[in-house]
């Protein structure tokens, strides 16, 4: 792991999908095993440059998510390294049996990319707004689940997974993420990344909520509250050691995810805490609801996913810690 933090906390000029396409084209140039698949979202995903340059290795199967996963698994059985994309709900919910059996149970080698996580599905609304994709995929034995936070991490993760074997679910924002890391940063899959030190509580955040958690830390610092922020970009395998360490050192935990609190990051952290180091826990996430249409900032407020929501939950967790000591 070799990480440099970027300054500023501003949206990146580079879209995540452009970074994804560029990285795959770089990989494809030196590795003829790389193939990409899509279910009629190649344009949405910004993959046309790849398709133009490598037409034989870009399979747009049309609107057939289940078939796409099976074809990807079949290609991998012949030694290819497939990256198969659709919107998050259709890359998981729609084709779960194919992911589970054709790819994972068969021990094949498939990277599944689900885009527009949670509220970032915005104007596509509830039908396209996955609050459950991570929870669904967590049930697949041996799967690796990653939500890259920004383009620097995305590039590194895509390159790393190309040389690994197994089934991966990569949850991917298509548009501009807030830049957290400098280019060239290297990450270790399964190892959470501390972003800011703190002593009163720890927030474990993923994806969209990473920057919101950093903002919450700034807000709380004004009141003299010291919040540790850890980027839990790998949901599975979960970094158990980091969770236990932070629980022991700060005594209060908050999770923050652009996803349902059921079977996502909140559940995963709760499972580790309750078995190994029970400390007060608050979970920021969607509370058993369907999505709806709207701009991202509206949806963040609607579903309780803002920096203010993180800060409020941190205060509550710290209060619970204090009550326990009394």
């Amino acid at each position: 792991m070799s990480i440099k933090l970027a300054q500023g906390g501003r949206p990146d000029e580079l879209e995540m999908r452009t970074c994804y396409c560029n990285t795959l084209m770089e990989l494809a140039a030196r590795d003829d095993r790389i193939v990409v698949l899509d279910a009629d979202l190649m344009k949405s995903m910004g993959m046309m440059p790849f398709k133009l340059k490598y037409p034989d290795r870009a399979f747009d199967v049309g609107v057939q998510e289940a078939n796409m996963i099976g074809v990807a698994a079949g290609l991998s059985a012949t030694g290819k390294v497939p990256f198969a994309h659709s919107f998050g709900p259709f890359a998981t919910r729609r084709c779960f049996d194919q992911v589970f059996l054709s790819a994972a149970y068969a021990r094949l080698n498939v990277r599944i990319v689900g885009s527009d996580p949670g509220i970032t599905a915005a104007y596509n609304g509830g039908t396209h707004m996955p609050f459950e994709d991570l929870g669904i995929m967590r049930n697949v034995p041996g799967i690796t689940i990653i939500e890259p936070t920004d383009a620097a991490m995305l590039k590194d993760i895509v390159i790393q997974t190309a040389d690994l074997y197994g089934v991966f679910y990569i949850r991917l924002l298509r548009r501009n993420a807030v830049r957290i890391y400098e280019d060239g940063s290297r990450f270790e899959i399964g190892k959470a990344v501390p972003l800011r030190d703190g002593t009163d509580a720890t927030v474990f955040a993923m994806g969209y909520l990473v920057n919101e958690s950093l903002r919450a830390a700034d807000m709380l610092a004004e009141d003299g509250i010291s919040l540790r922020v850890v980027n839990m970009f790998t949901l599975k395998p979960i970094d158990k050691e980091m969770i236990i360490k932070c629980a022991e050192e700060t005594g209060a935990i908050v999770t923050a995810e652009n996803h349902s609190i059921i079977n996502g990051l909140g559940s995963a952290v709760a499972e580790v805490l309750s078995e190994h180091c029970p400390v007060p826990l608050r979970r920021v996430g969607v509370r058993d609801m369907f999505g709806e249409v709207g701009p991202v900032d509206y949806l963040a407020k609607r579903f309780g996913l803002t920096a203010e929501d993180v800060a409020r939950n941190v205060r509550e967790a710290i209060e619970l810690k204090a009550q326990r000591k009394r």
Binding site: A66, I69, V71, G74, L75, A77
Partner: peptide
């Protein structure tokens, strides 16, 4: 599911 897997395998062989 075997149908899709077979298509993937056949495509892989063709690429090779």
């Amino acid at each position: 599911q075997g149908a899709s897997l077979a298509v993937g395998v056949a495509l892989g062989h063709r690429l090779d």
